[in-house]
Design a protein around this nucleic acid. Structure first.
Lengths: 186, 186
DNA sequence: AAATATACTTACTTATTAGTAAGTAAGTGC
DNA sequence: GCACTTACTTACTAATAAGTAAGTATATTT
């Protein structure tokens, strides 16, 4: 049983990734938790503060994950990273970067900054993991690690979106392709 | 000088791709055109009808483009397709598929259908162009045409989004990588 | 037992939203 | 010159948004 404050963040996160930041309201959260609108304002002064907390929670979860993954091979770490995206689609959600990034221009400044920081964090980790994998001969790819990182994050972000639009298995196709791209070819 | 009806579609299109469907209002359009709110309702019964018209206009533009491109080589056609995405970033816009797909669950049903149809249209064209290119030996890639198509559309959709979030040149990286992926290797 | 903090509810405000009904002014057809 | 259409405006409604001020019940501290 989570404290209300954390429950609010969890539900806001699901709403953002399901409907988008500009399509959910305090009323959506309140009704799901059987509390009143104003109770959310007790925990979060404004929607911007709540939005920032949602991004922060995602960052913390990502950092915990990467720590847990560190005992695996570089290839497996990247595969787990890709699986993290796939898991979103089970809850009919896209990733927070796609949900918030697509509305970037409408976000309050504090959320924009937190989102950019989150992107940096993810990118730094992925580039380092790819570089390490290449050095350890666990991974191979025919481009720079920066380019491979952008290809992976872009591919996964968008295929979650397109999987809702299309009847085709875009997510599966992209996932398979990206894993093949980093596989060792002998 | 466009008729008002077309001006409304053009401005709605820019607003959708800049702010998202749920973040723009009739007031935004009205103020830019120096007309009243209700004048938009004269041309479009509802926001859903306007939204659908915006997608239809994009579909028509795409079909016109592909017709114009047909005299070029397959490789050049795909390169022009990729450039079409890049051009969006000049107006601080993302592509309509990214802007609307990320809010897919909140869209009225008629818009969802039109968006899915648009995705089919784009995908069919791109798969065929890739297949033709492979047969004509103008293009080469190490996966199925369906997979390459999904990789290209996903990569371009997301890198437009991430270019706003990140200080890195995600769009340039992905664009370069994708073009390299379809280049003939000898 | 009194004071204080925590976690809310009740009741409200102000702003904005899509949408509508009725009216108008300028043209077009006959 | 009269009917009708086109392209609006004026003035409005009902719903929903985020946010606030004041009050309340329960637990904790002193």
């Amino acid at each position: 049983m989570l404290p209300t404050r954390k429950k609010i963040v969890v539900i806001a996160d699901q709403l953002i990734r399901n409907k988008g930041y500009n399509a959910f309201s305090y009323a959506d959260i309140a009704s799901k938790l059987n509390i009143k609108n104003a109770a959310i304002h007790y925990h979060f002064q404004s929607k911007a503060v709540l939005g920032k907390a949602v991004i922060s929670a995602s960052r913390e979860k990502f950092m915990k994950n990467t720590t847990l993954w560190s005992r695996y091979s570089s290839y497996e770490q990247v595969a787990l990273f890709i699986d993290m995206y796939s898991n979103n689609s089970k809850n009919n959600c896209i990733c927070f970067m796609g949900a918030l990034g697509s509305s970037f221009n409408t976000l309050p400044e504090e959320m924009q900054q937190e989102l950019s920081d989150a992107h940096d964090e993810i990118t730094v980790w992925l580039i380092n993991t790819l570089k390490e994998g290449k050095i350890n001969l666990e991974i191979d790819f025919a481009m720079t690690a920066e380019e491979m990182s952008d290809l992976i994050t872009s591919g996964m972000l968008a295929s979650l979106i397109l999987d809702r639009v299309s009847k085709n298995a875009v997510l599966e196709n992209v996932k398979k392709t990206l894993l093949t791209e980093i596989e060792k070819k002998n």
